[in-house]
Write a protein that binds this DNA or RNA. Sequence first.
DNA 1: GGCATGTTGGAACGCTGTTCCAGTCGTGTC
DNA 2: GACACGACTGGAACAGCGTTCCAACATGCC
Lengths: 223, 223
Amino acid sequence: MAKAKRGSERREEALSRERIVDAAIELLDTEGENGLTFRALATRLATGPGAIYWHIANKSELLVAASDAVVARAMADVAAHATARKTIRSIAVGVFEAIDAHPWVGAQLSRGPWQTATLQIFERIGRQVQALGVPDGAQFTAASALVSYILGVSDQNAANGRLLEPAVDRADFLETESARWKELDAHEYPFTRKVATQLRKHDDRAEFLAGIDLILAGIAASL
Amino acid sequence: MAKAKRGSERREEALSRERIVDAAIELLDTEGENGLTFRALATRLATGPGAIYWHIANKSELLVAASDAVVARAMADVAAHATARKTIRSIAVGVFEAIDAHPWVGAQLSRGPWQTATLQIFERIGRQVQALGVPDGAQFTAASALVSYILGVSDQNAANGRLLEPAVDRADFLETESARWKELDAHEYPFTRKVATQLRKHDDRAEFLAGIDLILAGIAASL
DNA sequence: GGCATGTTGGAACGCTGTTCCAGTCGTGTC
DNA sequence: GACACGACTGGAACAGCGTTCCAACATGCC
């Protein structure tokens, strides 16, 4: 243990699992998914790659730890509301925004499901499903449908952002994409062409919540 | 152009984009996502890595082409049904099963959304949403909620399978996972612990369809 | 002081995607 | 028939990755 002799840490600050995970999150946020390498991480922590492996088994574990941390913070920030319905919407938005701010989390959560981060979300949603009055036998289905939808859309949304360099404007992107849809083959893609116009004034967050409401309506209808 | 002089190809068979994509799909299916490398692909095609790059720009393009091919085949196999509702369920199952059989497709579709494969699914679902009688202004929302749910759950499901070696039985996996849930902290995870038992008799496909029905019920309720 | 233990960081390994390029093949032109 | 040219091939080489290994260091205990 590199315990401090008096008040000063060993050298600047000792290496620790927490410090490594924090640095990894920063690197992922600023440089993107490919920006996280053990060498870059080592440089940022002023050490060598080997030292990191003393605290963390491998890159996969590092990614799990990083996404767990991000989701935990997001869940802690979710406020309770008067109704279960409002709380569910609030949890959903919390996850959506956390993944929007840290797009790599989306990729990570769909890579290995049922890791701690996913369970945290499932638990929070599940309690509210219970509060909605869904009968015991249907709670699992309702909760996992909601969680799957939330993670699916959030990741899809984040993937859009991951493709483009930060410089590209979101409105420009939608404009371009809408134009692409309109140029699709008229016989093969009639529906897509028809709704291409709607894509231009598309608000991801609003659309996401509309989907949540659709599922909530379905749950309410089958009570 | 290595055009055939008479009936026989140049040497065995000429390299072509199609042959490369087919070999890539085989490799991904048999060896998993990490099994696809340009060297392994070159060996299988009895050539060198450089030759492949004449036909395909990079690995990303290869993955897009491979998943497009798989989805296209799955969509071609979907039968039309009497009601829009049944057809939607059928498309959903088709995608679910295609991703279950080729787990790497799930990862690929969530990596870069709005590629041809996703659009194909969106189009097919969209037409049925129209047939359901959803008003013009709400079709986009309904269709994209369904597609997001379908891709989200299918990928989540595939990710479960991707983790384990083929030897592990599905029932064993659920048993282990259920046991893990029951050992969670009682104060932090009351809901998850409560539904842990339901996880044991969990049928992914049935649960998936139940979620579809939930969304369809929501759509019907808001007509 | 000296030893054991926990921790560090740099060198090295095997693998990857990708680039480069010297060579081969089939064909169109004189 | 010779020649040249563009399409195509495949092996060598490069930079970078995750990971392993290990000689060196720091510190707490006897």
